[in-house]
């Protein structure tokens, strides 16, 4: 049974495939209890769920930022482009094209916006000229950053910082960006503009996105496929339009209710559904 689980790869030759991973923090706290997902090349996939469901942890398991937080992947495997990556350092992963944009932006406050962007090119070895070309590319997608290029990032607005963080990731020439809560703390208009840019980057530059979002409405509008996490497990997944149409998703994640308030007795319990054993 367990052996069969490792072989599962629902979407064939996906760019990223996460199989049945378990994550433990500090050797004691079990945060992910067998999460499987896959992201196709040039896809936009959303990872949905409430606070503490394990979205960020899943992303950090992929980018391997977990180790610095005393977390580790204890079971399962992660493949990127057919290669197993769950023992690689973030440095190696960025070189191979997987980069994470962390929740809460995390710009380098005392560096200027342009210096922030340039740090994203740290792992590149293709010379100054190529880096400068990509800097211009980032400024094309985020003209606002060009205006603010000389300001210290700590003094820019939340939206500018989010652009700066995404631009910084772009500077590493990624194949895939793990985008954690890009909408956090931003005005709806800005959120829409950030997501529009993500879509353009996906279509024009061929960047694959795995997106963790609490804002389910926006995420399902821009993603093509979604996974819903609940206390460290994937409880439901499907194409974005299928998820948006699902009654329970509407009720709990989209805040839409067709039939008035339900009684908790009628609520389906998803946590028993162990799709990682399928």
């Amino acid at each position: 049974m367990a052996q069969a689980a490792v072989q599962v790869d629902p979407q064939g030759d996906a760019l990223l495939s996460v199989q049945n991973i378990e994550v433990i923090y500090d050797h004691v706290i079990l945060v992910l209890k067998g999460v499987s997902l896959s992201v196709p090349e040039r896809g936009v996939v959303a990872l949905l769920g409430a606070n503490g469901a394990g979205k960020t942890t899943t992303l950090k398991a992929i980018s391997n930022l977990l180790r610095a937080e005393r977390g580790e992947v204890t079971k399962g495997s992660i493949h990127f482009g057919g290669k197993r990556i769950d023992r690689q350092t973030p440095h190696e992963l960025v070189q191979q094209g997987v980069i994470q944009v962390m929740e809460g932006r995390h710009c380098f406050e005392h560096l200027t916006v342009e210096e922030n962007l340039l740090t994203g090119a740290y792992t590149r070895r293709d010379g100054h000229k190529a880096v400068m070309q990509d800097l211009e590319m980032v400024y094309r997608y985020f003209p606002r950053l060009k205006e603010r290029r000389g300001s210290q990032a700590g003094y820019t607005s939340g939206g500018e910082q989010q652009m700066c963080a995404i631009g910084r990731a772009l500077m590493s020439r990624p194949r895939m960006i793990l985008l954690d809560e890009p909408s956090m703390g931003l005005a709806p208009q800005l959120v829409a503009s950030i997501f529009e840019t993500m879509k353009r980057l996906n279509e024009d530059e061929g960047v694959t996105f795995l997106l963790a979002e609490q804002n389910t409405t926006v995420a399902l509008k821009y993603a093509s496929y979604g996974y819903i996490l609940e206390s460290g497990r994937v409880v439901m997944d499907g194409a974005a339009d299928v998820l948006s149409a699902n009654e329970d998703v509407k009720e709990f994640y989209l805040g839409l209710s067709g039939s008035g308030r339900k009684s908790y007795r009628d609520v389906k319990h998803y946590k028993r559904r162990k799709r990682w054993l399928a």
């Binding site: 960025v94 380098f108 005392h110 210096e115 740090t119 994203g120 740290y122």
Partner: peptide
């Protein structure tokens, strides 16, 4: 470049790690 990375690490070492700067 190394100097910039040093300052980046000083500001936020998690973010530095995330862009592939080896701490």
């Amino acid at each position: 470049k190394v100097g910039r990375a040093l300052r980046a690490v000083a500001d936020d070492h998690q973010a530095a790690l995330s862009v592939g700067i080896p701490l």
